[in-house]
């Protein structure tokens, strides 16, 4: 999907593009996609930081967020909301998906992960893989809803078109060789405040302090009177909510969603988290943008069909040669 987006913006460009323009265009696409990946990566890195679980289900959680958004678009007829109504529609989608994904992520932790605290870590990981598969299947069934936006429900597995609620108009004017659309701007406008807010939350609030304490040493944190399970639950809630935001941004930016997209975006985001240094919030953001850029450049200069291999190759190389990632150098290896 990211692939087709890059291809479209290139072919639509009205003026012949020099190599510099092509490069800038790839960079713009890359950064926009990278911001989305970063937002999802934060969900992985927060959970890993606190309970050392690779939350496999996170990407598929985002899929469900997109499906909820598409359902709302169809049920409320949002395509017809013009002008300010369009903004209201986008805000409604963002908030409802965030609430939904946050609550769902909290529930998953409560049902599938919390009973396994203290058990071997691999049990937790296997349980997370199981949750991921369940969510994928729910998304598949959801795609079979008899609604017009879902293609009448006859093609449950087919990718769904997400209506373009945000204009694809070039902000630099129709004659410019480089395209920067409202959508690119929208991605930045939504993600940057979220990241700043999260940083504030983790650095300066009581809950954030508790999170950091639990991440450092759960037993000691519990002895200090911190309700560890509540803090872990809130981490899942916040990570899920960010994933919910990301899912709507993704759908609005790429205009197509499918029940399997969570696996791919999830792996991109996880790679980003590992690359940045898993457990580190700024690392997730940096890693996300790097992965976005790598994807765009690989689409443009290698071949789109190799892009996934490139990303996985980066993942493996990072894990083998620098498991602490770019920004995670100071991270203590927990045994």
């Amino acid at each position: 999907m990211i692939v087709s987006q890059a291809a479209v913006s290139e072919s639509v460009a009205p003026v012949a593009m020099g190599w510099g323009d092509v490069l800038s265009q790839q960079l713009i696409t890359g950064v926009s996609n990278g911001m989305i990946i970063a937002l999802i990566a934060i969900g992985y890195t927060m959970v890993y930081g606190i309970i050392e679980l690779i939350n496999f289900a996170h990407g598929d959680l985002c899929t469900l967020g997109s499906f909820l958004a598409l359902t709302l678009v169809g049920a409320l007829g949002m395509e017809a909301w013009a002008g300010l109504g369009g903004t209201a529609a986008v805000i409604t989608l963002l908030i409802s998906a965030a609430v939904f994904c946050g609550a769902l992520n909290w529930t998953i932790d409560r049902v599938a992960y919390r009973p396994l605290r203290g058990k071997p870590k691999l049990a937790l990981l296997v349980s997370a893989i199981g949750c991921s598969f369940i969510l994928v299947n729910i998304a598949l069934f959801w795609g079979g809803l008899p609604m017009e936006v879902f293609g009448g429900g006859n093609q449950a597995a087919a990718p769904k078109d997400f209506p373009s609620l945000i204009s694809n108009e070039n902000l630099l004017g129709a004659k410019s060789a480089i395209t920067v659309t409202w959508r690119d701007l929208f991605v930045v406008i939504v993600t940057v405040p979220l990241m700043i807010g999260l940083t504030w939350l983790v650095k300066s609030t009581r809950l954030g302090k508790a999170m950091r304490a639990v991440a450092q040493n759960p037993t000691a944190a519990a002895l200090m009177g911190i309700d560890v399970n509540r803090v872990i639950g809130s981490t899942f809630l916040i990570g899920g909510a960010l994933g919910g935001f990301a899912s709507v941004i993704y759908a609005l930016y790429n205009n197509t969603i499918s029940f399997q997209m969570g696996y791919r975006t999830g792996m991109d985001a996880f790679t980003a988290a590992v690359l940045g240094g898993i457990g580190s919030l700024p690392g997730a953001v940096v890693g996300g943008i790097v992965i976005g850029l790598v994807r765009a450049l690989s689409d443009g200069y290698i071949e789109a069909r190799w892009t996934n291999s490139v990303v996985f190759g980066i993942l493996i190389l990072t894990l083998v040669f620098r498991p602490s990632g770019i920004l995670g150098a100071k991270l203590r290896e927990k045994v």
Binding site: V126, G130, C131, S132, F133, I134, L135, N137, I138, L140
Partner: peptide
């Protein structure tokens, strides 16, 4: 997917 996931 549902069956495999539930099993795990």
């Amino acid at each position: 997917y549902l069956v495999f996931g539930l099993v795990l």
